[in-house]
Amino acid sequence: MTKNAILSFIVLLALLAPGAAIAHKASVYAFSEAGKIYVEGYFFDGAPCRGCVVEVRGDKGGSVLLEGSTDEQGHLEFEYTGTYPLYFMMAAGQGHAASFLLDEGQEGPVVKDLEDCSRDMEALVDAAVKARLAPLRAEISRLRAASERPGITEIIGGTGYIIGLAGIWLYFRSKKESRD
């Protein structure tokens, strides 16, 4: 009897463990804008990854081209006019790592006349906002899809609920019978 109880407890703990891992999963994304690269690292619960070392390579197995660490807001930026694609790898402590592949970059602004400048300003701002929003949009649509679809967690939860309800029902029934 005690052995069963201990085993059940261990199984229960094991089932709860993955939740903690997911909470600390880290994510890094980067985009380039006008000759600079902006890197942002954060954890899945939204907190920024402070002081996390970011390595920039040409591809997954290549040598490190650049290295830096994120600031208090989880950001890192640097000038870059080299080649693409770039592979970013961020170490988030406790063995967690995140990676991101940036396919192509955006070149720096070209100096123009004042008249053209205001028109170009709008275009530049537009492009910059789009660039910043694109990864966020992708993330949002992915999150929304995931949240709307009932996953395996919900299925197991619901089944457990049903088993629990059956157990409670039987418990009260048997109490009633033992009383009669």
Binding site: I162, A166, R173, S174
Partner: peptide, 12 residues
């Protein structure tokens, strides 16, 4: 009582 588990499984 004996039928409750059966009902629970089908409900799942």
């Amino acid at each position: 009582n004996r039928r409750v588990p059966e009902v629970a499984v089908v409900a799942s």
